[in-house]
């Protein structure tokens, strides 16, 4: 709620206001304190600036991390292969990953959007796992 200062009546003489002010403040034993920046002084300014800075840094950190997570979640298999250099080795790792994830994923892996868990599994597949997969496949009847 905004404060209302205007009165319908005529303004009072400044000398009267000054005299009244002198008497009131003298009676209270204090001196008037006026500042043009009353709303930005002692109470709020220092901690407000610090809080704004912390919020800004926090916001940027959160946004950056959110962006990373989102991009990982939205990567499809081809994009992951691309990230790995799209070379022969990468494709073999990818095959191994698809095998690890199961037939369902294998069938439509081109269109599939991997979950965060799937991506995590993919990224932890190493060459040993790949070769083990291949050996197992070769041993199967």
């Amino acid at each position: 709620m905004k404060l209302r200062k205007k009165s319908r009546k005529q303004p009072l003489p400044k000398s009267f206001i000054q005299d009244l002010e002198n008497r009131v403040f003298e009676e209270l034993g204090i001196a008037p304190e006026r500042s043009k920046t009353i709303a930005l002084t002692s109470i709020s300014k220092p901690w407000a600036v610090a809080a704004s800075f912390v919020l800004l840094i926090g916001g940027l950190w959160y946004y950056t991390n959110q962006a990373k997570t989102t991009s990982i979640e939205q990567l499809n298999v081809e994009q992951i292969a691309g990230y790995l250099g799209n070379d022969y080795e990468a494709e073999r790792y990818l095959d191994a990953t698809i095998n690890t994830l199961g037939n369902e994923m294998t069938l439509d892996w081109h269109e599939a959007e991997l979950t965060e868990e799937a991506v995590s599994q993919f990224l932890t597949v190493d060459s040993d796992t790949y070769w083990m997969t291949e050996i197992n496949e070769n041993e199967s009847p």
Partner: peptide, 29 residues
């Protein structure tokens, strides 16, 4: 200044005089 801001000044011992001066200027007429 809003009424809430003025009250905050008036209730804080460190800013009470400043708030009271503002109240005096605003409401004397």
């Amino acid at each position: 200044m809003t009424e809430v801001e003025l009250l905050t000044f008036l209730k804080n011992p460190k800013t009470k005089i400043r708030g009271f001066t503002y109240l005096f200027d605003t409401y004397n007429e």
